[in-house]
Design a protein around this nucleic acid. Structure first.
Length: 783
RNA sequence: GAGCCCGUAGUCGAUCGGUUAAGACGCCUGUCUUACACACAGGAGAUACGCGGUUCGAUUCCGCGCGGGCUCACCA
């Protein structure tokens, strides 16, 4: 017997049971068709947020749906563990430690975070097979990442070179373009006097005067009449240095004075011009962001130097004016500090010369929604440089190479040396200059780790990996298309010759209810654990399904989650009601179904069809909508009321019970992927048979083999329903209870009413006499 | 500046050319009618951002404008 609904109890009970019964086990059965999900390994922050819940719910729905459709679902869960934020946390707690010890502390800390997140995932009813859990910090994982890099090195995808890179002075590491963010900052545009060839004043405009010591040219637009006479002439900077004036179309005439200074590493254009015009390279800033080659300004931070210099120019009368400007400053996405461009010896992965192929590989994948691919192609088209894969950090996968510091020679570690750790690496001689080779000290960008997840989960490099590769589904957030999706498509295809997944499902961010980003500073964060205190997990999961707008940010909606909770209640109570009558019921198809029975079963069939269709296309939102409509309104508001007189009074009870059974049984199954706990309880309590086990391993419903209502009959039923509605309305407006009797009813209709339906109306509405006449549809009645 | 999404009742959102434009939340009026008051029965509330065009017919397709969002590039 179903008891009063206690969702907490159900959640506890079944979480345990599913674990014991290994309900979500990947069978690895060669005879079964496979469905592989390349799940996102979350960064191990220790806290599951609403974005996780949304995204993870989506593929949990898919996994459960596929399982019920007879697939052997391979749904592993991994953890993206290494990286800067962990180092910061551990450093805060333990201070600076020698690398090996520090790494150990990072691992300990991460294990703790994983424990927390894992239990939150289990609470949410997610159904991975935990036997296939992976962590990017495991030596086994390191080994595979390193192997992938060695292979890419041998195939000339990975190389070491000196090249300008984005550099974070705070983190003292190179970072990739994808890790940069822009924030708007207000700054000053300074107009400073340089001297022309005749000693005349020339004003340049700059926001970064502190880089002037590295000024190597002055630029203007080739059609700017004010300056064309300067072509090739020597200009003297405010610091007294002589540089050439060069025209270039990239210069904006309208900005500032139309004249600017080039400082090698000021910004991307500076780097471009330096290369284009083969200008001398002057390092202006060191890895800590402090000035070098700047005489008495050496060692100062950029901001300090800027102030000093402006002061100096003011005194000398070389500062004409300062204008307030809004500028976009590139910052490191993890630490939010402004970044610099720096020429540096780093490891790169060649993406620039493969942009076209990567685009083709991406187009072989089905993007859901289809416009999602734009995020990727737009990004590829704007790639300027190759991907910097080396990071000057500790908690990461060591790059498996040896380098000669003297001549620049490099070679990969042997495959037998893997996993490779620099502190335990071999001693080797440089074959070129006989110096000692030193093991590479940098680690890989975290995206190097995570960009081979489809290979890792499939068991690569073991040849058997082909059985599980490519993955069927890659679910992920739209904000990491340019990183995770991009790098995965690139690396995995390079390594295997095949794009890494067949379909990619994109989800957006969860915003605060007010439409703004959730953030600590705004205090508008909604956490899953808080939500869970007030709402059943099944309603949180329904919220996720209802937020289904793919690849779009959506505010969190309390309305949706409250509605979901009400629906669970409705579903539960309807089940209890039906259970009462099924007590001594033997399930078998009656010879004759009544019209109303066929009506609800026809509706059921329609729901099964459209629900299945929506699930096939990951349209959880519309699937659930149709279900709500059917279950709440067709079933509860109408059909249940229609059959009450039959089940209470034992008149033509069997067909009604048969219909109720089928409707509830099949609805329960349809709802199972989303409402995992409540459906399990109802399934086991009402429909369980020993061999069937969990609903989550039961078969997905198919439309029943019944004589469905014809189009005409369905239209007739619509009219029937509106007659009922009129009667209810009539009773309500006459302050009568709904089960009060009516003496007579007159219906005008263009349709033929079978006697059966007239009798139904009499019984359902308690009307003594009903008259039907031909005419435009209308209903009238008397008390 | 470029590309992409989008603009439907107070709010959120269906309707992928065709009768009176779903549904939810909120609001109003009744009802504790033996599953459910987290409910039921009803009600009010939308000239579908604007203007053109295609069409027998447009909320739905196209163009322009206005207004939002996202991504990228943003200028020293």
């Amino acid at each position: 017997m179903l008891e009063k609904l206690d969702t907490n109890k159900l959640e506890e009970k079944y979480t345990k049971k599913w674990d014991e019964e290994k309900t979500y086990k990947f069978k690895n059965d060669p005879n079964m068709k496979k469905y592989t999900i390349d799940t996102p390994p979350p960064f191990t922050s220790g806290e599951l947020h609403m974005g996780h819940v949304l995204s993870y719910s989506f593929f949990d729905f898919a996994a459960r749906y596929k399982r019920m459709n007879g697939y052997d679902v391979y749904y592993p869960q991994g953890w993206d563990t290494q990286g800067f934020p962990t180092e910061v946390k551990v450093e805060k707690k333990h201070g600076r430690l020698p690398p090996a010890e520090f790494r150990k502390k990072c691992v300990e800390w991460t294990e703790e975070m994983i424990k927390r997140m894992k239990s939150q995932m289990i609470e949410m009813g997610f159904s991975p097979d935990w036997d296939y859990e992976y962590k990017t910090m495991d030596p086994e994982y390191h080994k595979k990442v390193q192997l992938s890099l060695i292979r890419m090195y041998k195939d000339k995808y990975v190389y070491r070179a000196k090249h300008p890179v984005y550099w974070c002075p705070r983190c003292m590491s190179a970072i990739a373009k994808a890790e940069t963010e822009e924030i708007e900052k207000s700054g000053k545009l300074n107009y400073i006097i340089f001297k022309g060839p005749e000693g005349e004043d020339l004003q340049i405009a700059t926001t970064r005067p502190e880089l002037m010591h590295a000024c190597v040219a002055v630029m203007y637009h080739p059609e700017d009449k004010r300056y064309t006479h300067l072509k090739g002439k020597e200009i003297t900077t405010a610091l007294g240095k002589k540089v050439k004036a060069i025209p270039d179309k990239l210069v904006e005439k309208e900005f500032g004075t139309g004249l600017l200074m080039v400082c090698t590493f000021g910004d991307k254009d500076d780097v471009l011009w330096t290369h284009r015009y083969k200008l001398p390279i002057i390092e202006a800033i060191d890895e800590r962001g402090k000035l070098i080659n700047a005489g008495d300004l050496d060692g100062l931070k950029a901001e300090e130097a800027r102030e000093k210099l402006i002061e100096k120019f003011k005194k000398e009368g070389k500062l004409v004016k300062q204008e307030d400007v809004k500028q976009a400053v590139k910052v490191h996405d993890r630490c939010k500090r402004p970044i610099e461009l720096k020429s540096s010896l780093q490891w790169f992965a060649d993406i620039k010369s493969h942009a076209k192929e990567i685009k083709e590989w991406a187009s072989e994948i089905k993007w859901i929604p289809d416009f999602g691919i734009h995020y990727m192609t737009d990004w590829i088209e704007n790639v300027d440089w190759d991907w910097v894969i080396s990071r000057h950090r500790v908690f990461g996968t060591p790059l498996p190479f040896y380098v000669c510091e003297k001549c620049g020679y490099s070679e990969p570690a042997e495959e037998s040396e893997l996993p490779f750790y620099p502190e335990s690496a071999k001693t080797k001689k440089c074959p070129k200059c006989k110096e000692n080779l030193i093991p590479e000290q940098t680690v890989a960008d975290c995206w190097v780790d995570s960009s081979i997840t489809p290979l890792i989960i499939a068991g690569w490099p073991d040849e058997n990996y082909k059985k599980l590769y490519p993955s069927d589904l890659r679910p992920q957030g739209v904000e990491i298309v340019r990183t995770w999706a991009f790098y995965t498509v690139y690396r995995s295809t390079v390594l295997t010759g095949k794009p890494p997944f067949k379909e990619i499902l994109l989800n957006g961010n969860v915003l605060a209810p007010d439409g703004r980003k959730m953030s600590k500073s705004l205090g508008n964060i909604i956490s899953p654990s808080e939500l869970k205190k007030e709402y059943p997990v099944d309603s949180v999961r329904q919220w996720a399904a209802l937020s289904g707008a793919m690849a779009k940010d959506r505010p969190f909606s309390y309305e949706d989650i409250r509605f979901s909770k009400s629906f669970i209640n409705k579903y539960w109570n309807a089940s209890r009601f039906i259970e009462k009558f099924l007590e001594n019921y033997k399930h078998s198809k009656p010879e004759k179904l009544k019209l109303l029975d066929r009506w609800i079963l026809t509706k059921l069939n329609g729901t099964i069809k459209s629900y299945t269709d929506s699930m096939e296309n990951y349209q959880f939102h519309s699937a659930l909508h149709k279900m709500h409509e059917f279950f709440w309104h067709d079933l509860c508001d109408n059909y249940l009321e229609y059959v009450k007189y039959r089940v209470y009074n034992d008149t033509e009870k069997q067909p009604a019970l048969y219909s109720l059974y089928e409707v509830l049984y099949n609805s329960t199954k349809l709802l199972a992927p989303v409402m995992v706990f409540t459906t399990e309880e109802i399934y086991r309590e009402l429909f369980h048979s020993p061999e069937s086990g969990s609903i989550h391993n039961s078969r997905w419903p198919k439309p029943l083999k019944i004589t469905e209502l014809s189009e005409d009959e369905l239209i007739l039923m619509d009219e029937f329903n509106s007659i009922v509605s009129s009667a209810r309305q009539f009773k309500a407006s006459n302050r009568l209870s709904q089960n009060s009797e009516l003496s007579s009813m007159k219906i005008y209709s263009e349709k033929e009413y079978p006697d059966e339906l007239i009798d139904e109306l009499k019984n359902i509405l308690k009307v003594k006499i009903i008259k039907i006449e031909k005419g435009e549809f209308s209903v009238s009645m008397e008390i």
